[in-house]
């Protein structure tokens, strides 16, 4: 009985003493933290994807609260409206950025870009890239083992087994940029997001000469320059046999899509321009290539209309 009382007493006294010590220590080493950091963190989506360039949402909210000018900070997942409400909450100027979407720039489907060898190593694009050019003969095209699909935290990417290519679900994509880093071939680009997910882009990254490209892929950019001539906004540049459409300058006029002889310019969620009976230009084009492109675009449009 005596020992029980003694134990209870000793522990109680020890507890009180330690409480007093802890109180003073807490006073002495108190860390002042802005309570707004917690509030801002709650407003952010909490995906911790790193798309903003910080380690996670907490680090981003610390930066948002501590910096005077938050014009360069942007959470691609939250988007413009949330960023505006955060800026209002903090009483700072909101960062202005139009929404972006990841775009996969390879149109070499299994049909257009046949496989010429069989690979049986680790199913990982980066590994394939250390060995050789890949199963098709194209050194720039999609390898199709889905490093980007694994990197995407939002389920916006999927591998289409029919085409062997990765497809982007523009509604789920937050433009965090993880796929841009993951792709060893550098096929992804964050481009301006148009209403109704419309888009026009060159689905090819091959810097080889046209003759070399057409040998390995029937959907590749051959650098012919027809699109550049027809563009009224100077949005198209050609560098090392490869056309590029500047998303900031492009107005989605669709003229270039009709000009492209290989169908390397993809058009999404839009109808093509009706064909003008321009005799000299169309005659020169290989006839077989055009209907193929047309059917492909129709396929692309259909699911969006439903």
């Amino acid at each position: 009985m005596n020992s029980l009382v003694l134990t209870v007493l000793t522990l109680s006294v020890l507890g009180v003493l330690l409480a007093v010590v802890l109180y003073f220590v807490a006073q002495k080493f108190k860390v002042e933290e802005d309570p707004r950091i917690d509030d801002v963190e709650k407003m952010l989506p909490g995906a911790n994807c790193g798309g903003c360039g910080f380690a996670g949402c907490r680090a981003m909210s610390e930066a948002l609260v501590s910096r005077d000018n938050i014009g360069s900070l942007f959470c691609p997942v939250a988007g413009g409206e949330v960023m505006k409400s955060i800026a209002d909450f903090l009483g700072k100027a909101a960062p202005e950025k139009s929404p972006m979407v990841a775009t996969m720039r390879c149109g070499g489907t299994c049909e257009k870009r046949p496989k010429v060898n069989h690979y049986d190593g680790a199913l990982n694009c980066a590994v394939v890239n250390t060995f050789y050019v890949g199963e098709s003969g194209c050194a720039f095209g999609c390898i199709g083992y889905g490093d980007c699909v694994h990197a995407c935290k939002f389920g916006a990417l999927s591998l289409n087994p029919e085409t062997g290519l990765v497809e982007v679900d523009a509604d789920k994509c937050t433009a965090c940029g993880a796929c841009v880093k993951a792709c060893p071939k550098g096929l992804f680009e964050l481009r301006k997001k148009w209403p109704k997910n419309r888009a026009i882009y060159v689905a090819c990254r091959s810097k080889n000469r046209g003759a070399v490209v057409s040998k390995v892929c029937k959907a590749g950019c051959i650098g012919c320059g027809k699109c550049q001539k027809v563009c009224a906004f100077g949005a198209i540049t050609i560098d090392s046999h490869l056309a590029y459409i500047d998303p900031e300058k492009c107005k989605l006029c669709r003229k270039c899509v009709n000009e492209c002889p290989t169908g390397a310019i993809h058009i999404v969620n839009m109808e093509r321009l009706p064909k003008e009976p321009k005799a000299p230009a169309t005659k020169a084009e290989p006839k077989a290539a055009t209907p193929n492109v047309a059917t492909k675009v129709e396929n692309k449009v259909e699911p969006a209309n439903k």
Binding site: N124, A126, V127, T130
Partner: peptide
Amino acid sequence: LPLLDYIRIGKQ
């Protein structure tokens, strides 16, 4: 396991 395949990426 394709051990070396991955180690090679790590090394590079």
